[in-house]
């Protein structure tokens, strides 16, 4: 038994080399339009894997193919080494999923929703139902009709349903939807706890700051294609910029932009220069500015956030990959 209070000190994940979810040349076409186009993904056991992309990038289509809800046009999806299309009855019972908005029977209580799913799965004890209800903080409201629940409570119940069968792979589409800040923190702790137990968590989310905090690796897709797949650190490292405050920023910017390393430099609305540095080193930037007659008041290095990476790779989410 693991106490959730102690999860802050827990290692982020115990990822292993075993691939839990794998897609190979996965394609889904609707008519001539490819929703997913040759997608290759490898998600390993114990990872919290972030799956990112702008609206319409093909995230939900990929998830639906992974869960056997829609059939790929070509390519394959494997879960725990078995093809989902061929062995859906063997592999999908080992998956828990929350896709988009939680789908619930509004006329039943939260507990009865779990009992209904438990009846289908078979072998789900009342103790397990109590446990997942407590886990998501719905024990006190379990007998109330779901129709009376807030969006956040419905989201929690959706997570409880996903956890009911103690899945090896948990697929969550926008898990933070409707959760208040405390709920988001609790959800984050829960997911870390699950990953520490060797569960694999696959998250699709628009809340990139949240993904950056929790995910061990991320994949970014756009127009149905994989743009990049890497650790969060791997994506953000080396893509930062220097923030420079000087007395005459316009003139300084002009000098910087004449340099090959500074061609992309820009001035923001606050009169602050955002630039790269010679050899990527701050000290060389300082020397350059001083030699050019600009004595900087402040030079700081700002690492690129996942959001910056996302916007850079998806060209501001407008559908064009750079």
């Amino acid at each position: 038994m693991i106490d959730m209070q102690s999860t802050a000190a827990m290692p982020r994940a115990r990822a292993s080399s075993e691939t839990v979810l794998r897609t190979r040349d996965l394609v889904k076409r609707y008519g001539e339009r490819p929703a997913v186009n040759g997608l290759n993904l490898d998600v390993r056991r114990g990872e919290i894997f972030g799956f990112l992309g702008p609206n319409g990038a093909g995230k939900t289509t990929t998830i639906r193919m992974a869960l056997g809800l829609i059939t790929p046009t070509s390519g394959s999806v494997e879960i725990l080494g078995q093809d989902v299309v061929v062995h859906r009855d063997k592999v999908l019972p080992r998956v828990g999923a929350l896709i988009e908005q939680p789908a619930l029977h509004l006329y039943m209580s939260g507990r009865d929703n779990l009992r209904a799913v438990g009846a289908i799965l078979g072998g789900v004890s009342n103790q397990r139902i109590e446990e997942v209800l407590s886990l998501v903080g719905l024990a006190a409201r379990q007998k109330d009709r779901v129709r009376t629940y807030s969006l956040g409570m419905k989201q929690r119940l959706g997570v409880a349903i996903a956890l009911l069968n103690d899945p090896d792979l948990l697929v969550l589409d926008e898990p933070a939807n409707g959760l208040d800040p405390a709920g988001i923190v609790e959800m984050r702790d829960l997911l870390r706890q699950l990953a520490a137990q060797g569960k694999t968590v696959f998250i699709s989310s628009h809340v990139l700051a949240e993904v950056q905090q929790i995910c061990t690796r991320v994949a970014i897709i756009n127009l149905g294609r994989l743009v990049t797949e890497s650790t969060v650190e791997g994506l953000t490292r080396g893509h930062g910029e220097f923030i420079v405050r000087v007395e005459n920023p316009t003139a300084a910017l002009a000098q910087i932009q004449r340099q090959p390393w500074g061609a992309q430099a820009k001035l923001d609305g606050d009169g602050v220069i955002h630039t790269a540095a010679p050899n990527g080193q701050g000290r060389y930037l300082t020397r350059f500015l001083v030699e050019a007659g600009f004595y900087p008041d402040q030079i700081t290095y700002q690492e690129e956030s996942l959001e910056d990476v996302f916007l850079r790779l998806t060209n501001g989410s407008n559908g064009e990959v750079r």
Partner: peptide
């Protein structure tokens, strides 16, 4: 969620939905 604990003690073994199980679930819902 904060005060909850997560245990695998009561977690079911790998489950496989059967036709009877699906029937039971549908009956329950109806």
């Amino acid at each position: 969620m904060a005060s909850a604990t997560l245990t695998t003690a009561s977690a079911p073994e790998t489950l496989k939905p059967s036709f009877l199980g699906v029937l039971r679930g549908e009956w329950f819902k109806a």
